[in-house]
């Protein structure tokens, strides 16, 4: 796409913001695991993955900034809660390891499909960001898939915990597949494939769960839509904490 009209710009922002925000919040929540992982080696792995996720968000915010949106740091520190487009799945605070593995397996698998589908968008800065992101995403998908298999084969107790966690995570999946305001924007960028990721995701995850002898839990309907900025008080708290230091001198150097 050579000439990017204002309408196109706005549309691309509607498409990229949910993806960037998912990555940022996943990185923010993932950082809560620092010093808390099941062993030291895993602590290192998780920290890398969180740094990568924050970095992916930053790359996408940079693409948006080039299109005339606010700068990356402003996206993170100066946006009201209602302006965020991430889904429920990545917002839930740290629980136990089985929950985290189930949660991130679901998210990483979906994000991987979504990023690959984005390859259809003819916007060079986006494609260059995507190339970097996808390379790291490969490792994230692998890491959580290895953990999924590990907990599935880790004995009766471990399998039961994983199965239960998966059911809990499936009850929060509703808005993962939503595009909110972005639904109409997809056609403008020849990205209608992005609106039909759900069946792709379901078949990939279903096959893996079957292979590991795990049940397919019920996916609950969405109660609120994060893609429309509906995040509840839990996110207001997170946002207040995240921006608390900067709030001391919002325009200052840090």
């Amino acid at each position: 796409m050579e000439t990017v009209t204002p309408a196109h710009r706005e549309a691309l922002a509607d498409i990229l913001l949910p993806i960037a925000d998912d990555a940022w919040i996943a990185g923010q929540r993932g950082s809560e695991w620092l010093g808390m992982a099941p062993d030291l080696e895993e602590d290192l792995a998780l920290s890398s993955i969180s740094q990568d996720a924050l970095g992916h968000a930053q790359l996408l915010y940079d693409v948006l900034a080039e299109l005339g949106n606010r700068e990356a740091d402003e996206q993170v520190y100066a946006r009201p809660a209602s302006g965020w487009r991430h889904c429920r799945l990545v917002q839930t605070p740290r629980q136990d390891w089985a929950d985290f593995v189930a949660r991130r397996y679901c998210y990483e698998t979906f994000d991987d499909l979504r990023l690959h589908a984005l390859a259809g968008a003819g916007h060079a800065p986006l494609q260059s960001a995507l190339a970097k992101i996808l390379q790291e995403k490969l490792y994230h998908v692998r890491h959580f898939d290895t953990w999924l298999q590990t907990l599935a084969w880790g004995g009766t107790q471990s399998r039961a915990r994983l199965q239960e966690a998966m059911a809990g995570v499936f009850s929060e999946l509703g808005d993962l597949f939503s595009w909110g305001q972005g639904a109409s924007a997809l056609a403008m960028w020849n990205l209608t494939a992005l609106s039909s990721l759900r069946p792709l995701w379901e078949s990939r995850v279903r096959a893996r769960l079957e292979q590991l002898g795990l049940e397919w839990p019920r996916v609950a309907a969405k109660k609120s839509d994060g893609r429309l900025g509906e995040h509840g008080p839990e996110f207001s708290d997170l946002l207040a904490e995240m921006t608390s230091v900067r709030a001391m001198e919002p325009a200052g150097e840090w």
Partner: peptide, 9 residues
């Protein structure tokens, strides 16, 4: 429990 599960797996 996670480390024990991993050893088992």
């Amino acid at each position: 429990w996670v480390r024990e599960a991993a050893i088992e797996a």
